[in-house]
Deep mutational scan, measured.
Amino acid sequence: NKFNKEMRNAYWEILLLPNLNEQQKRAFIRSLYDDPSQSANLLAEAKKLNDAQA
């Protein structure tokens, strides 16, 4: 399933972002589970926040 693969990839990438705190990571991951079809958008948002907090 395409969404499962995308979601899994986004999950691990979000977990490994160094500048997000645990609460932020949990919020993004919760959103991933709520709507896996938004994986790419959520990952992009997480990366943007990660860069902003660098």
Rank of each mutant, 00 (worst) to 15 (best):
N1E: 07
N1G: 13
N1W: 00
K2D: 12
F3N: 07
F3G: 05
F3I: 12
F3H: 07
N4Y: 06
K5T: 02
K5W: 04
K5Y: 04
K5V: 03
E6P: 05
M7P: 01
M7I: 08
R8V: 05
R8E: 15
R8P: 01
N9I: 14
N9A: 15
N9M: 12
N9K: 15
A10T: 11
A10R: 03
A10G: 02
A10F: 04
Y11N: 02
Y11W: 05
Y11D: 01
Y11V: 13
W12F: 14
W12R: 15
W12T: 13
E13M: 11
I14H: 00
I14T: 01
I14W: 00
I14G: 00
L15H: 14
L15D: 01
L15P: 01
L15F: 08
L15S: 09
L15R: 12
L15V: 15
L16H: 13
L16N: 14
L16R: 13
P18T: 04
P18D: 07
N19Q: 06
N19T: 08
N19P: 00
L20V: 08
N21F: 15
E22H: 06
E22I: 05
Q23M: 10
Q23I: 10
Q24R: 06
Q24A: 06
Q24K: 02
Q24I: 12
K25P: 00
K25Y: 02
K25L: 04
R26N: 09
R26W: 04
A27I: 09
A27T: 14
I29F: 07
I29G: 04
I29W: 05
R30Y: 11
R30H: 09
S31G: 13
L32R: 00
Y33F: 12
Y33W: 05
Y33G: 03
D34R: 09
D35Y: 08
P36A: 08
P36K: 05
S37W: 12
S37A: 11
S37V: 05
Q38M: 08
S39W: 03
S39D: 01
S39R: 10
A40R: 06
A40P: 08
A40E: 08
N41S: 11
L43S: 11
E45H: 13
E45I: 07
E45N: 11
A46N: 00
A46S: 08
K47Q: 09
K47A: 06
K47W: 02
K47H: 13
K48R: 06
K48M: 12
L49A: 15
L49V: 08
N50D: 07
D51Q: 15
D51S: 10
A52R: 12
A52P: 06
Q53M: 12
Q53G: 12
Q53H: 13
A54S: 13
A54G: 14
A54Y: 13
